[in-house]
Write a protein that binds this DNA or RNA. Structure first.
Lengths: 135, 135
DNA sequence: ATCTAGTTTATAATTGTTCTAAAGTGAAAA
DNA sequence: TTTTCACTTTAGAACAATTATAAACTAGAT
């Protein structure tokens, strides 16, 4: 992903490309594989990577703006922390509770044959499959 | 469910049948349908039901003991609160984010045709399907 | 009835997240 | 350019969910 795309992501998230935001965006989106993180883990990684510490509040704000703009998705994980995913396409997850690790599963790798209809006046927004792992 | 079963649930959870625990257990398990709750909602309902307030810490302790003993299951829901379910059989959920309501789906009502194999040395513990609803 | 380990309770501590308000900054206008 | 101002960053406060603490209490064995 090139720098111009980073700026596009920021602009489409209604975020001015400040130093901090560009740094966060590059860290999140300039990678080959999808990236799963919590705000806490992202903060630690950013501290390790660059010398200048970015305020936690800035990370929360930026991550939420990306999420609202559809550049990040939130993953359902048991527990109190919120997990995010740079893969925003429709897909599923393995969850390895041993080391709290999420692994993407391509939407095509799970086929659901039978599904119940939505209750009274509701519609199905999306279906998420979560495969818990053990050793 | 009879009182004897309540005592059994407490005993199998390694909990002495104190007044508070019996009250919580009866509230949770003496019902026809499965019950979904957070500790906060359970606390409010218990306050409404009985005159004597049970300390939050006691509710947390008791709920966790039941969960550890397998009498309650924890449900994955986005967000910061922890949801519990009196249905401990293998099953799935609808989630209506409009009113934060969980609805059980019987395991037989969802059939998965194709599923990926677990990664490197891991095994599949269980599969949870989550169907998000909209209006 | 007495004793003791287990329990309840109010409150403090901790953790994850959001809010606030003051100081700082990008970029449009002059 | 320089000025200007709405948008940003930041540290710290506030908040919410959960867990820990320690003193008072209690179930159940003796």
């Amino acid at each position: 992903m090139k720098k111009i795309d980073i700026l596009k992501k920021l602009r489409s998230s209604k975020l001015r490309p400040t130093k901090q935001r560009v740094e966060i965006a590059k860290f999140l989106f300039e990678r080959e594989k999808t990236f799963h993180f919590t705000v806490e883990s992202l903060n630690k990684l950013l501290i390790k990577k660059s010398t200048s510490k970015i305020a936690l509040a800035t990370i929360y704000n930026t991550v939420h703006a990306f999420k609202t703009a559809g550049h990040l998705s939130e993953v359902e994980v048991r527990g109190n922390k919120t997990y995010f995913d740079t893969n925003v396409s429709n897909h599923h997850h393995f969850y390895d509770s041993e080391n709290s690790e999420l692994i993407d599963i391509d939407a095509n790798d799970i086929v659901i044959q039978k599904i119940p209809k939505a209750p009274n006046g509701k519609k199905i927004k999306n279906v998420e499959v979560f495969i818990n792992l053990k050793n």
